[in-house]
Design a protein around this nucleic acid. Structure first.
Lengths: 152, 152
DNA sequence: TTTCATGTAACTTTATATGTTACATGAAAA
DNA sequence: TTTTCATGTAACATATAAAGTTACATGAAA
């Protein structure tokens, strides 16, 4: 399976947008992310439906943040993407008649569920505002370590 | 990506083998698992190299368990598979120059690393012997709940 | 020497994320 | 009104990885 990077991607977009007033076109964002405008629209669609961002057509149109960044967590963003699978591994069969498989599933599910729960909890602890704050720190210390260009 | 079920599969095989003395041919095991003999050989290869199982060619050949089931954990089995990816999600770019992406990666990595560590820890708590014990309990209570056929 | 079983390479299939093209929709500007 | 710009979305293409399949070499027992 290819690794899912949509959460990573959409957070990148949001954080970029939070740095300056919008709106931003999908094309602008796509260039910054080195990808395709349609990919941007795709990962933003869920956030628009929930109301975290807004989009406008036509001249001067594009994407705008429409939420309180201190109220939205990474977990909320993940949910807006449609709760895609977190774990790369799973059971062979979900509701097996075979008792052997049931025993295996029970053991694995316990571990899997714990890990998923922890991951979601951790994501729920971080707001977009906190991410922005961390970024500001990084931007501040940048000039002290060689002014590496901001690629995007 | 397709969900990886090799750990689930190989545990199923081991638990089956633990129920009665071997050896078992790949074909027998494949039928029990409703899959292909080559798939069995493939997921068993790593375990053979580490010495958890043995394989013999020719008449009377097949697979045999060659380890102390109370000493091998699910984590050990996972490692024998070659430590395949645990998480379905990841960062867009691993070592980005973009500070925005660095900030995103830092936040996500913390959550990802914690979840992975917990998952591995949980797998490390369960031995194959414990799995077998759980299975024996399930086999015992089976007759009290309708004798559902053992599919495999 | 025949039969059986593993070992493995090569290929096919399937699932899923990502990338791309094409075009409809609607809004602002000319 | 017409043109331009931007999103919305379907359809198709590509990439990656697991799982399934075929074919054949290797080696052991009958």
């Amino acid at each position: 399976m290819k690794r899912d990077s949509r959460l990573s991607g959409v957070l990148h977009v949001l954080l970029h947008m939070a740095q300056q007033p919008g709106p931003f076109t999908s094309e602008t964002l796509a260039k910054a992310m080195d990808t395709n405008p349609v990919v941007i629209r795709r990962i933003m669609a869920g956030l628009r439906e929930i109301g975290y961002v807004r989009s406008e057509k036509g001249h001067g149109g594009g994407w705008t943040i429409a939420c309180d960044l201190s109220k939205v967590t990474l977990r909320d963003v993940y949910a807006a993407l449609g709760n895609p699978p977190l774990l790369a591994m799973g059971n062979r069969t979900e509701a097996p008649g075979c008792l052997v498989e049931q025993a295996v599933n029970a053991a694995l599910d316990q571990a899997f569920d714990d890990a998923e729960a922890l991951l979601l909890a951790r994501l729920g602890e971080v707001t977009l505002a906190m991410l922005g704050e961390d970024l500001r720190k990084r931007l501040g210390s940048r000039k002290h370590q060689g002014m590496k260009a901001h690629r995007a």
